[in-house]
């Protein structure tokens, strides 16, 4: 069970003077329960890529399959939940409950089952039941974002694609969202996060893919990432520079706690001695 992408090329406006190749010969696959980050600069093709996962765009050449079915097949829609940037702009319900229930209701859920699904999605994102009767438009920006995400979670997709879900969220809401997403992966849901803040999210990820001008330029684990990729986390840069200055420290580190124990170790054994 996986999303499989084989030699995907995508051109906008093919056959016109505005033709623009946005994705070039991309192959990758995403398995069950994986936490995937997709990074790259603005215009690198990352949003175009994920729009292929549920058939919003069709490849110009190559193929995209979800659990063996073509991604634009109707059955795939319920399996792949996609949340775009600024999802709070997509809220419309009179109450939070109605908003979150919209997706699963459209996929045929009714009655108790529907209610349970809505409550558990909201609970996962740290909301009490009481919020259900509130209007979504009276929430803070961060809460609106989380309610919009609950709306996608409530449809229980097998693959959850989120485009820049963390931008503009404060540290607290980010932690809530990140642990909710981690929890989903333990239940077998694959989580695919598009972000330009890869360094901040490294410790959560199983694998990272980086795009540059439509090319897949990196695919690998967080440890591979800090060895090879551009835009390293600041902690990794610090460790690399300490190493260059003659400290015997690991430089494949991106977590503050690991950096702390590495630095404490060398400071304790050597005293503060450089080269």
């Amino acid at each position: 069970m996986s999303i499989d992408i084989r030699n995907l090329t995508f051109r906008y406006n093919p056959g016109t003077p505005l033709e623009n190749t946005s994705l070039k010969d991309i192959s990758l696959s995403i398995g069950k329960g994986e936490f995937i980050l997709i990074g790259g600069e603005i215009g690198s093709g990352k949003s175009t890529l994920v729009r292929h996962f549920n058939g919003l765009l069709k490849p110009s050449s190559g193929q995209v399959t979800v659990d063996g079915m073509a991604a634009h097949a109707k059955k795939v829609k319920a399996r792949v939940g996609v949340l775009f940037q600024f999802p709070q702009q997509q809220l419309f319900g009179r109450t939070v409950f109605e908003d979150v229930a919209f997706g699963p209701r459209n996929f045929g859920l009714r009655g108790n089952e529907l209610e349970e699904q809505v409550y558990s999605a909201l609970e996962l994102l740290g909301f009490d039941k009481e919020i259900c009767s509130n209007s979504p438009f009276h929430l803070s920006g961060g809460q609106m974002r989380l309610v919009a995400i609950a709306g996608v979670l409530a449809s229980m997709p097998e693959y959850l694609v989120l485009d820049e879900p963390f931008s503009g969220l404060d540290a607290e809401n980010r932690t809530t969202l990140l642990s909710a997403l981690k929890h989903l992966t333990t239940k077998g849901t694959s989580v695919i996060v598009v972000s330009h803040r890869i360094p901040d999210l490294l410790s959560a990820a199983d694998r990272i893919f980086l795009l540059d001008h439509g090319n897949l330029v990196f695919g690998g684990t967080p440890v591979d990432y800090v060895k090879h990729a551009p835009y390293l986390p600041e902690i990794t840069c610090l460790m690399k520079e300490m190493r260059r200055k003659g400290f015997d420290v690991r430089d494949d580190i991106f977590h503050i706690d690991d950096a702390f124990s590495e630095i404490s170790r060398v400071l304790n054994t050597k005293g503060a001695v450089g080269k």
Binding site: P233, E234, L238, I256, I263
Partner: peptide, 23 residues
């Protein structure tokens, strides 16, 4: 600042951890 829901920049957080550990 964590109390106010603000994350310290990684380098600041690391230096504070080291200082608090007595280095």
């Amino acid at each position: 600042l964590e109390m106010y829901g603000i994350e310290l920049p990684p380098v600041v957080a690391l230096s504070r951890m080291l200082t608090r550990a007595g280095f």
